[in-house]
Nucleic acid binder design. Structure first.
Lengths: 344, 344
DNA sequence: TGGGGTATCCAAAGCGCTTTGGAGATTGCT
DNA sequence: AGCAATCTCCAAAGCGCTTTGGATACCCCA
């Protein structure tokens, strides 16, 4: 069933049917109703490709998912981010185009999107410091929103980010307040912008109290479970073992926890842990009392916000282009006062 | 830059340029080279929408991601499955269209794909027993591959599945061999086909030894971490606590582990656990010696296989349409002989 | 009655590509 | 040399839709 066939059934021209369906005023309410009813009855919906070609708008948003070439890891937050963004897209009649691409090919993926004209805008994931993609996309004049920010970037661009600096600054302060002085930072790869900011917050909290931290207790890698385990295991074997961990992801925290338990230590008593919690749907941080003390911010909500901004840009709206979300610091069972010196 | 402009630069007709680029034989090798070079130089790539309209092939595959309406959960295996499928798509010049949709709206999402003509095929996720989508898609005559199977379905269809029955049968046998007699099954929702099959395998292993299992030790729910925790916590408090757990997902197993440790029990000694391991990229099951004894099957590989089959169907190929992957049973540190009766 | 305004509908062009059905140039063969 | 076969290339139609620029019919008022 296409437009022409439907119009023949109705004894109308394709023009009128198209206008009726798209809400143009040049058609009487009576015929509009008639057309809508017929479209419904025959299960007609305009062919996306034809409409896109005619209007020049793809009604689709592109997401480029980078797969790190070394570990072939897919960041687990993508699923939830995409779920959030997807909600907004469907509600607005947009489609989501996913491109799974290895790191190096990413820039080219954006160019392809532009040249092939199959998206109206793009969401940029996982920006690195001074990420070149921002310049590239501005140059291509393809609307985009970044999930995160790219420091050192001077150009103007739209973004949705969590205040990672502030979150980790607060978390660190909290641990210092509890008397912890040897705090390990188990961070993401620090070319990633969020990781760099978290580290800066961690450092700032020490500085402002005139304390210094041990760089040999700061780690940066892809946030897998085994990374958390192996790092914690090694650290806890040291003579000057840390009394607290600040961990950048729930998954990695699971590994840290495993190490702690293997050594017969008790979480929240012998060792304190604060994690960053993206509120992944399958990994809620406890029900009544959270299991982990955590800096918390919903990545799904971030997805919604980013999508909303992008659609607004495409429509030429004037909503704010930059959203900085503050993370909650929720108190859970994984933190406690620093144990007496006697232990170490 | 479009076809016409490029052809003007080259002093050729659009026809010739199109043919040169698409490898038709009606054009000399010399001009083909010239055309390709020019396309490269000017960064030309055909407009997807126009090409789709002309050829009637969308060069895109649709994935419908259902978001369960009650818990708003996104299955964490999707990310890895999609990464696997995405690889195959990009390699073959296909795009991936994602539709995030609540359970109820799913059937309609497929109809829309068909009517709007923006995909050439569909991957069906998370089939339920006797899933109506299979009949629907056959009726729509839209090529599709199911990730999993739908028992009670008599129609013919393409699928890629893990032998869930066999995997859980073997795992159960293994626990029985170790002397375990009270085994808890912490399963996914049992309207899901895979969950039902796993339960059947679990039952079969008992039966064939003339043993019976306690239905009050069988659970079925969305596979979150807290589900695993709360279930194990409750079970271990019982007088007839299980000595072993068979768990349907790594995430849920993390919760089970947490419960075990909270109670001061030792995994692999006091309580044995076997999990199903989808080989999620961020959650590798240990390095040298696996942490968990597990039935293991790469969901990413399943994604690759499913995508490959789908493209073959679309091209009218004749590769096998049904792939049953056997899961490995890998021995890890989470299982051991059943503890003496004395303990309970 | 007749001219201007308004409401309603339509014909045709065009979006950028592929593809059918030739046309012209070149070659091979007798 | 002359004709058919073969190489190259091209004009034009068409994919299904939107949109510009009318055309027609109807109404109101002088």
């Amino acid at each position: 069933m296409n437009l022409k066939q439907l119009s023949e059934i109705l004894n109308l021209s394709p023009t009128t049917v198209s206008r009726a369906l798209n809400g143009y005023p040049e058609v009487s309410e009576a015929t509009r109703k008639r057309v809508q009813a017929a479209a419904q009855a025959h299960g007609y919906a305009p062919n996306t490709r034809a409409r896109s070609l005619a209007t020049g708008r793809a009604h689709a948003i592109g997401h480029v998912i980078p797969v790190s070439s070394n570990h072939e890891m897919v960041n687990p937050v993508f699923a939830d981010f995409i779920a959030g963004a997807g909600e907004v897209y469907s509600r607005n009649g947009y489609e989501m185009l996913l491109s799974v691409v290895s790191d190096e090919a990413e820039a080219d993926a954006y160019r392809q999107f532009k040249v092939k004209g199959n998206v109206d805008g793009i969401i940029v994931h996982a920006p690195k410091m001074g990420d070149p993609r921002i310049h590239l996309l501005n140059e291509l004049s393809l609307p985009f929103v970044v999930h995160g920010r790219a420091s050192e970037e001077v150009e103007d661009y739209a973004w949705v980010d969590v205040n990672n600096f502030h979150a980790f600054e607060r978390a660190t302060r909290f641990l210092l307040d509890l008397g912890h002085r040897r705090i390990a930072l188990v961070n993401g790869i620090e070319t990633m912008d969020f990781a760099m900011r978290r580290r800066a917050g961690f450092a700032k909290a020490h500085e402002e109290r005139g304390l210094s931290y041990d760089p040999s207790m700061c780690f940066a890698d892809e946030m897998t479970e085994s990374y958390g385990h192996d790092t914690a295991r090694a650290l806890l074997a040291r003579g000057d073992a840390p009394t607290a961990f600040l961990v950048s992801s729930m998954i990695t925290t699971i590994g840290v926890r495993r190490a702690i338990e293997e050594l017969g230590l008790k979480l929240g008593r012998d060792v304190s842990v604060i994690t960053h919690d993206d509120e992944l749907s399958y990994f809620r941080n406890g029900a009544d009392v959270p299991v982990y003390t955590a800096t918390r911010s919903s990545v799904r909500e971030a997805g919604r916000r980013a999508a909303t901004i992008l659609l607004d840009i495409i429509r030429g709206g004037d909503a704010p282009r930059q959203v900085l979300l503050e993370a909650d610091l929720t108190l859970g069972q994984s933190t406690g006062p620093a144990p007496d010196r006697g232990r170490g």
